[in-house]
Amino acid sequence: MSRRGWLALGVTALAALAAVPLVVRRDDVLNFLFLVLLSVALAQSWNVVAGYAGQINLGHAAFFGLGALVTRTLWIAEWPVLAGAALGALAATAFALLVGAVAFRLRGAYFAIGTLALGEILRITVGNVLPEVSTLPTATIGAYRLADRYYFALALAAVAVGVVAALERSRAGLGMQAVREDEEAAEASGVGTLRLKLLALVLSTALAGLAGGLFAYYHISYYPAHPFGPHWTFDALLITFIGGVGTVHGPVLGAIFYVFLKEYLAIRWVDFHLLIFGALFITIVLLLPGGLVEAAARLRTLARRAC
């Protein structure tokens, strides 16, 4: 599809989704779409650093969690929620720069393990410092409107997709992909790899922090350590790989597929759904490393040959 075609598709989808709360009155539908949009935002944020810059960050939940923590704290202290989310994103990126300067000395599997450990350290620390469940004040619960959360999610998902689409066409995006493919060859071709990796991390964690803020705005009650849990990282990773890592539309397809399947499986096979996703992930990596995007491309080729 041409650039214009994608833009038209994006605008149409956005308009249609924006109209949903006006037409549909069922909370379960809005909740489902909310989860898809939150997943799109979170997966795209991971896609920037891992899919484009090739840095497999397994501590992504740390930045989601920080965004949630800061947003929730400020919002309960009666800040406007968007200001809280902005500061949450800022906190996440500030922490990311601090970490990145050190962690980017590690490569490949070492970087992945290092970031995984970091995420866990943060989760345990927050769990120990803030063991009490965080519940919204009664007045806030009374004024709770799901549509507000939905629109926040829609805007954030649109921004996340927009950021990745812009990156795809930019000089910086091409440089990041060069880093992903071969860091040494990229350096030899003039690419300042450390700067680009930090840029990818900043973009990625800013989006993750905002997604965390969205989470804090959505849930009435949760344990502060919950958004730091490693399953947030693995959700983002699975969605990105299922859809198509390092593509603009892959994580969008992946999020729709994943949330749908997860909700369905969670109802039918409560205990087994993690097992099923594990098997699915291995299958995709082995047989279809380009995810749904690659599957679609292969089908198109087959169809063209058949015609």
């Binding site: 091409l174 440089g175 992909q177 060069a178 493919e181 071969d182 060859a185 390092g246």
Partner: peptide, 12 residues
């Protein structure tokens, strides 16, 4: 850069 096209390689 194996995952990029020939043109993208040169563009880098």
């Amino acid at each position: 850069f194996a995952g990029l096209s020939a043109l993208e390689n040169v563009l880098v």
